[in-house]
Write a protein that binds this DNA or RNA. Structure first.
Lengths: 125, 125
DNA sequence: CAGCATCCTGCGTGATACTG
DNA sequence: CAGTATCACGCAGGATGCTG
C-alpha cells in the first residue's frame, strides 16, 4: 500500500469511503456523536463499551481518528480554551448526513452477523 | 493488541462490519459480483479499474479476501475442477442482502467525497 | 482534562516466483 | 488459469510517560 500518490478517491466512492473510515473507532465515533456534542473523555469512555475487555484506548489513537474525521469534514472540534481543558466534538452537516449510512450498516449487521446481544447503543432509534 | 479473545462482534454490529470488510477490495468485490458470477481473473481485472496506477493486485491478497468473504458467508466459491482451472464466485443470499448497504455507501460517497467522475459501475441503480 | 512524544509489535499488503 | 509460498515493509494501534 502506501502508494498514496494519486488516489484521493481512486475514482471509486467505495474506496474513498474505506479510506475515510479506516480506523477501528471512526464509525463508532460518528455514531456516538449523532445524539449531540461530546467531550473527549466521553467519547473515549463510550468507546469502551464493547471494547472487549482490552485496556483503555490509547489517546494517541483516539486523537488521530478525531483529527482525521475533522479533516474529512465529518466533525467539528470546539475548543473552549479554558483552564481545565474542555473540548467538544460535534457532527458537521456532512457528518450528520453520514449517520443514516451507519444506521444501514448497523441494521444489516444486527441481522446478519450478530451474535449481538443488544448491549450496544441500539436503544437510540 | 491481539487481544482477539472475545470479540467475534464486540457486541457491536459496526465493529463486526468493519472486521468483515477489512481489506481494501472486499467491498468492491461484493459490488462487482452483484451483477452475477465472475471468475477469478475477471474479478482481478475488474478491481484494477480505478486502482490508481499501482501494479496488479497480488494474487495472494485477492485470494485471501475471497476466502475471507466466503467464510463470512457473503459469497460462494464454485470450482469446476477442470483442467484449465475454472472457478466462479457468486454472491450468496447473505451477500446479496449486503449489496444495498454498499449502494448506500456509494451513494453517499458520490455526493460527499467524490472527485468521482462517473467512470465507475454507477449505472447500476 | 485533553492531548502529544516515543517505543514497539503484528498484520495487511505489495512484489516475485513457483505449482497443479 | 487459479492459486500457494516466501520475503519485505509500512502503518495502524497498543502501552507509557509527560505537558499546558
Amino acid at each position: 500500500m502506501a502508494k498514496a500518490k494519486s488516489d484521493p478517491a481512486c475514482g471509486c466512492p467505495v474506496a474513498a469511503f474505506q479510506k475515510m473510515i479506516s480506523g477501528k473507532y471512526k464509525l463508532r465515533i460518528v455514531w456516538d456523536l449523532k445524539d449531540g456534542p461530546r467531550r473527549y473523555s466521553e467519547i473515549r469512555t463510550g468507546l469502551l463499551r464493547g471494547a472487549g475487555g482490552s485496556a483503555e484506548i490509547a489517546p494517541r489513537v483516539l486523537s488521530r481518528e478525531l483529527k482525521a474525521l475533522a479533516e474529512a469534514g465529518l466533525l467539528d472540534r470546539k475548543d473552549f480554551g479554558v483552564v481545565p481543558p474542555k473540548v467538544e466534538y460535534r457532527l458537521t452537516r456532512k457528518g450528520k448526513s453520514f449517520v443514516p449510512v451507519i444506521a444501514a450498516i448497523r441494521n444489516w449487521g444486527m441481522r446478519h452477523l450478530a451474535p449481538v446481544e443488544m448491549s450496544d447503543g441500539m436503544a437510540a432509534e
